[in-house]
Amino acid sequence: MDALVERVTRTVAMRTSRRGILGMLGKLIAGAMVLPLLPVERVSARANTAEAAEEGDPLSCDYWRYCGFDGSLCGCCGGSTTQCPPGTMMSPTSWVGSCKHPIDGKDYMIGYRDCCGKDQCGRCFCQNNKGDMPLYRTQLDNGVTWCFGTASFVVNCTTAVKLGLKS
């Protein structure tokens, strides 16, 4: 799996967009062609939902939250799994994936939020396509540049914010 991921990942190396997906989540977000905005405040609030302790290396593409990831890991670019690098703009929008926590075995919603406004960081490219759909399911397309709501569609890297348990 790692090898596969890395391989695809490399190809994506260029910059690209990102966003993973979540088949079932699609239903939740579906009608939202209009705007998948997840205001920052709401995201941080929900990120505190109780769950098992973290496990794994957030700088590795096989870290559990990255099951739908597509882009450079912000942790390798001056940010972290939940922080954008200095001087970039975190998009208030994202696509949302669903990944299984390795410890409690539950599925969590993960918001793959782009950090925009600086050129591609280029480090730690990671592409996992679980749940990735074509553009007609826009909210589930990790090939879209999710910089809506920021001042630039140039992507620096991508975060993976835990939004809470999948209901």
């Binding site: 260029m14 910059r15 591609q120 140039v154 992507v155």
Partner: peptide, 10 residues
């Protein structure tokens, strides 16, 4: 069409 290089998408 090559939308970008390894570290540039401009």
């Amino acid at each position: 069409i090559s939308p970008a290089g390894v570290d540039s998408e401009e």
